[in-house]
Simulated assay, not measured.
Amino acid sequence: MARRRSNHRFRRVGILLVAIVAGGLLWREVSGSPSASETPARVVIPRGASMRAAADSLAAHAVVGSSRLFRWFAALTGSERAIKPGTYQFAARTGYAAVLDALVNGRGLMHTIVIPEGFDLRDITPLLVKTLGVSADSIQAATTDTAWLHRLDIPTPSLEGYLFPATYSFPDGITAREAITAMLQQFEAQWKPEWTERARAMTLSRHDVMTMASIVEKEARKAEERPLIAAVYWNRVRKGMRLQADPTVQYALPQHVERVLYKDLEVDSKYNTYKYAGLPPGPIASPGAAAIAATLAPADVPYLYFVARPDGSHEFRTTFDEHTRAIAQIRAARRAAERSQGRSSP
């Protein structure tokens, strides 16, 4: 009898120990132990996703240790049907409580925004306003931040051209200044030491490089033509010729136009390179890495002119007479194509 009581007591102690260990493990999962040294995981919760699908995704990204336990915890708290869809960012082993709180209340939501090459502040501002819910005034304040202007040695009043084109993921609630800072930090990260050496060899400041690169970015439609377009403009600069770059006129106008007309060439602005020789005061858009590289490694050609073909490629010429003939040939080909299309139409 005494032996049976002893065995029963041992079983109760064993069960108690198992319960304590299991409770400790569960508590660790619930409270979590986020790792600051690991790259945060980005988890997408699609609209209409079930708790099972969400938990499986969280477990696959090592945000939670067990999909089944996380679902059980969500059911225990009555939150299994209250999660919000979106893109979240979590550290590994965040903990069930914190993850569930983020999913239910939309905390940790990420907003993805794509800044294409060749966008200027007039293009970027409405994207940030719409995606991040910040005001246009706050963006203007951030892009005229004198601390960054001094840090990047920018002589113009704004950070135009230095918001590096890329895909960004910003957390919900980010401020305009924080978003702009991230873009500027991306620019600094992308700028290569060899570009600095090359600019020095060409006796150019980084601002000169970024200004020319922005024009090359706006003009080039074919990647292989970037060095050629850069060569044309640097050749014109060396000869003291006006750049006569249409994108600079488009930038100088109060509203964007798809096509520059003769009347537009009269706009009185230092950015109007039909009126003023040399580079404009600063970039007219945000150039990508390829345009910057081409600007610093222009093709070794004597061209001074180019004209666009209908497909976006260009004809390059050295003399004005050759350029004039190229324009006439392209216009004639365009008219012939239009007549041919007209005849083939029903």
Rank of each mutant, 00 (worst) to 15 (best):
A189H: 07
S79I: 00
R325D: 14
P227G: 15
T203E: 14
I284K: 03
R107I: 14
Q244E: 13
L159I: 05
D145M: 08
A333R: 15
K275E: 08
A291N: 12
V257Y: 01
L127H: 04
L228K: 01
S79G: 04
T125C: 11
V134N: 01
E80T: 13
I215P: 03
S286V: 13
V129T: 07
D101F: 05
P126L: 09
I154W: 04
R122E: 12
A82F: 05
F10W: 12
T131K: 09
L76D: 01
V209W: 06
V134T: 02
Q185V: 05
A22P: 03
I139A: 05
D264K: 03
P85F: 09
T125S: 12
V301C: 02
A290S: 15
R107H: 14
E29I: 03
I139L: 13
K239F: 10
D208A: 11
I15D: 03
S6D: 00
A22L: 13
F320R: 11
L25D: 06
A166C: 00
Y262S: 11
I139C: 10
D300H: 09
G86N: 06
L163D: 04
K218L: 13
I15C: 03
L279M: 04
A176I: 00
S214C: 11
Y262K: 15
F119M: 15
D246H: 06
V260N: 08
T248N: 09
N7R: 13
Y251S: 15
Q186C: 06
I83W: 01
A326L: 10
V13N: 04
Y96D: 07
A182H: 02
P310V: 15
L121F: 09
S345V: 10
I174M: 05
G312A: 00
E194M: 09
F119T: 04
R177M: 11
V44G: 00
T175Q: 05
V249D: 02
A41L: 02
V232K: 05
R309F: 06
V267M: 01
A75I: 08
A49W: 05
E322N: 03
P193S: 03
I20G: 03
V129I: 12
G240E: 04
A41Q: 13
D321I: 00
A230I: 08
S31R: 14
N235K: 10
H8C: 10
S169P: 00
S31C: 05
F70C: 06
R206Q: 15
A142C: 08
L163P: 01
V249H: 03
Y262L: 14
T77C: 09
F10L: 12
S31E: 15
R242A: 14
T181W: 01
A297S: 12
G173Q: 02
I83V: 11
A97P: 01
A220F: 08
T77V: 08
R9Y: 04
T203F: 10
G288Y: 11
T144I: 12
P155R: 11
P46Q: 15
A98Q: 09
K263E: 11
